[in-house]
Amino acid sequence: MTLTTMIQKMSEGLGNTCSIFFLTLLIALPLGVVFALLRMSKNIVISKLTQFIVSVLRGTPLMLQLLAVTYGPFYLFGWGISRNKLIPVVIAFSINYAAYFSEIYRGGIESISVGQYEAAAILGYSKAQTFVKIILPQVIRRILPSVTNEIVTLVKDTSIAFAVSYQEMFTIGKQIANSQASFMPFIVAGVFYYIFNAAVGFVMGRAEKAMSYYKQ
C-alpha cells in the first residue's frame, strides 16, 4: 500500500475522530459545571457522593470506562451491544472529561474573592445573575489555560476508541498497520494528532488573548 492510500484511508476516519472530539466537548464542558456545582453543594450527601464519583472517574482508566459503557449493559442486563459505537464512546468520554473539567471549574470558582459575591449581593443581583454575569466570566478567563490542556489531551485520547473498534482515524491506522505489517500508519497518526493540536493551540491562544483585556 502506498503512503498516499494510507493517508487517504486514515483521513476517512478523521470525521469520526472529530465527532468524538466535538461531541465530547459539547457535552463535557457544560456537564462539568453541573458536577462542579453538585460538588460544591451545601448538602453534604450530594457533595460527598459527587466527590466520590469524580474520584472514580479520574482514578480509573478512560479505556476501562469506555469498555464498561459499551459492554456493561450487555453483561448486566443482557441488552444488545449498540451498533453505532459513537454513542457509548461519546457517553464514556463526556462523563470522564466532565469529571476533569469539574475539578478545574471548582478551582476557578473557589479562586474568586468573596468580595465579588458580596458586591453583587449588595447590588441586589440574584444568585443566578451573580454566577452568570459576575463569577463565570472571571472563572473562564482564569481556567482557560487548564482547559486548553485537557482539550489537547482529548485530541489524543480519541484514539482510545480503537478499544471498541469504533472506526476513527487511529483504529483504521492500527488495522492498516496489522494487515500491512508496517509502522508507517502510526507515524501518519502522530502527524495528524500533532496538526490537530496545533489548530487547538491556535484557537485557544486566540481565545486567551481575547479575554485578557483586563488584568486579574
Partner: peptide, 16 residues
C-alpha cells in the same frame, strides 16, 4: 436591598 448601598474598603469592582 434597594434601600441601602455599601462602599467596600477594597472596592470590589467587577474587573471584567
Amino acid at each position: 436591598k434597594k434601600v441601602f448601598g455599601l462602599v467596600f474598603q477594597n472596592f470590589n469592582l467587577f474587573p471584567h
